[in-house]
Design a binder for these strands. Structure first.
Lengths: 249, 249
DNA sequence: AAGCCCCTTTGATCCATGTCAACGTGCGCG
DNA sequence: CGCGCACGTTGACATGGATCAAAGGGGCTT
């Protein structure tokens, strides 16, 4: 959590996010909306907020009143147990939404932290509900986004409940690869924004186990890793890894 | 999956569920709605469907067009991997909703199976969306329900990612106890509707491990178990179990 | 440019839970 | 009413990943 002295003193900037001008809307909430509808949405997406690496977008327990769309950067969400144990519940990149968990109790139920300097669009939730009572497409798309989050979580449960360490890491890398691809980046080469410990927490493994699995993949020629830089050399090989043995030790 | 010969040949019964007369609405979708609003909802909740034990409400891959509210009985949802591995993603009881995962792709992404003879209300999803564009309370409540599902899944991820076997089982029993309590049943005594294997799948454990944990809890005087009959003798003791050590082996 | 600290890697050992096996038990069906 | 079978329990052993430990590397700070 480096607290570097920086030129920009304010993180809350009152500038229209302008969904209509945003090249992300194919990935984000406006997906499928007409131009006129997107302009209505512009009125709801109140402002942008910049975060430095390590900064919290929100913390568990804080009152909820908006969801956020990642405009640039990279986040993690996590849940802390009283005894200090941490579970990373997800990593969010460009175009993905943050804060959906807060709707339930009107308080955030997890922490959201920027893993690199990032920018989000703030979407006041009551406004979004209002607009989605008017625009059926928006309503339906929002429901799909929430549902997708549920499906995603089931995938993670599957991973945590039935897969062994190397399968989990393979699944994780393939998932990242696919999401980078969808954003126009290379499917085969990327920088991890999170530490081995955060990967481990997400995958239910210790950081040493994650590190060893990386090394093993490298030995087997499946990937090339150096620190946070990953190149996938053999995608089918990684996929094959995932459909094998039973059990967890 | 006993295929008993039964008197009732039809499972799809065209009878109004009548939310307005249903004593469950404090637990279910109509929560917080006015009487007039509940009557509108009655028009949407198309019909009831009865399922025998072992019967599927829906299967992964089937087209999605409705969500379901459990009116009576008990369900599990699960996801299957190609290689046969199963992950139980949840157990649903009276008043809880099934099928939210299907909204995302318009196809169900998991299987829903009745663990005892059960009855559900069918809620055609497009109708629900239509009505929730009219009734803000309903819209907001529905969003809360979806969000609650996300929060619940994060809890399971925490459990699978950071807890050891006995902690997981303690968390599971306390959760069941709390949900039975909310439904007016005894918090301390209930019948499990699922097998040790299903519990194990949900908790990311093998059935033998679940069985041993039950036996251990019994030795320690925390519970009394006999087969599917469970009595909780020491709730604080179970809670204490959950806030201890690190690590998974 | 140097130094520090965090992250990562790797090795050695341990332990929780998986695996395999055998036996017990109660429900449902014939 | 009793038999069979799925479910549950318990024991012995195997092992994957955790734990403990130590050393190397890279980037940010000074």
């Amino acid at each position: 959590m480096p607290n570097r002295k920086i030129a920009t003193p304010i993180t809350l900037i009152d500038v229209k996010s302008a969904c209509s001008n945003c090249n992300l809307h194919e990935l984000c909430l406006p997906l499928g909306l007409s131009h006129a509808e997107i302009e209505k949405l512009d009125e709801v997406v109140a402002n942008r907020r910049r975060l430095k690496r390590g900064e919290h977008l929100y913390r568990a327990g804080q009152p909820f009143d908006a969801i956020y769309a990642v405009r640039s950067g990279f986040f993690k969400t996590d849940v802390l147990l009283e005894d200090g144990r941490e579970q990373v519940t997800g990593f969010q990149m460009t175009g993905e939404l943050l804060g959906l968990d807060g709707i339930s109790t009107e308080h955030h139920s997890c922490n959201a932290v920027a893993l690199e300097d990032s920018e989000v669009c703030t979407i006041p939730f009551l406004h979004l509900e209002g607009l989605s009572r008017e625009i059926q497409t928006l309503q339906h798309h929002f429901h799909k986004v929430m549902s997708r989050e549920i499906v995603r979580d089931h995938g993670v449960m599957m991973l945590l409940g039935t897969m062994r360490a190397e399968e989990r890491l393979a699944a994780f890398l393939l998932n990242l690869s696919q999401r980078f691809t969808a954003r126009g980046y290379s499917p085969a080469e990327f920088y991890l924004r999170m530490t081995r410990e955060e990967i481990g927490s997400y995958l239910g493994l210790k950081l040493e186990t994650v590190s060893r699995a990386f090394s093993r993949f490298q030995e087997e020629g499946l990937i090339a890793v150096q620190q946070k830089h990953v190149r996938i050399l053999n995608t089918p090989g990684l996929k094959r890894l995932m459909s094998h043995q039973q059990g967890r030790g």
